[in-house]
Simulated scan of single mutants.
Amino acid sequence: MSGGLARQRLAEERKTFRKEKEFGFSAKPTKNADGSMDLLKWECLIPGKDATDWHNGFYPLTLEFTEEYPSRPPKCKFPAGFFHPNVYPSGTVCLSIINEDEDWRPSITVNQILKGIQQLLDSPNEHSPAQADAYMFFTQRTEEYRKKVLAQARHYSIDRVN
């Protein structure tokens, strides 16, 4: 029964996202081998915010939902090795609104998750480091951190994504 609720909620969220999506954001379910939609795994793009070092980048993110959604948050992952203090080397994002032991609430939507992660890109949480190198650069070697972020933005520019 709960699996049906998860898929029903995700189908509604997909409709809402398509109607209300903001420029640069993309979020859509992947396809199963038979061509049907897999509502439990989404591929997304998050644009870097204007006037930040992340600007001009479109960052790929996967959302992996379980049958317990929305009682439990999705796992949110950038590609492995993504450079950010709050992203584990595996690519998993460390953010309170997607942590069921912290600020996750079943009312949080896919759109809110993506906007929260976009905000996290330029505003890392120093109190929740997930990646030693990125954390060290962010807290101690700011100019080198900025250069790495700019290089990553170039790597994920629209020219490379398309």
Rank of each mutant, 00 (worst) to 15 (best):
S2Q: 07
S2P: 00
L5R: 03
A6T: 09
L10V: 12
F17A: 14
E22W: 08
A27R: 00
N32L: 07
G35C: 02
S36T: 12
S36E: 05
L40D: 08
E43D: 15
I46K: 12
P47C: 04
P47M: 08
K49S: 14
K49W: 11
D50R: 02
T52H: 00
G57K: 04
P60C: 08
L61R: 03
E67Q: 09
E68T: 13
E68S: 15
P74H: 07
K75G: 12
F78G: 09
F83S: 03
H84W: 04
P85A: 12
N86H: 03
Y88L: 12
Y88P: 00
S90L: 01
S90P: 01
T92G: 05
I98N: 01
N99Q: 04
E100G: 04
E102L: 14
E102P: 05
W104A: 08
I108S: 05
T109G: 04
T109V: 05
V110D: 08
N111V: 09
I113T: 04
I117Y: 00
I117L: 00
Q118F: 03
Q119R: 02
Q119G: 00
Q119T: 12
L120M: 07
E126W: 05
E126G: 13
H127R: 09
P129F: 06
P129G: 10
Q131E: 13
A132V: 13
A134K: 10
F137E: 01
F138G: 01
E144L: 12
K147A: 15
K148P: 00
L150H: 02
A153D: 03
S157F: 09
V161S: 00
N162G: 14
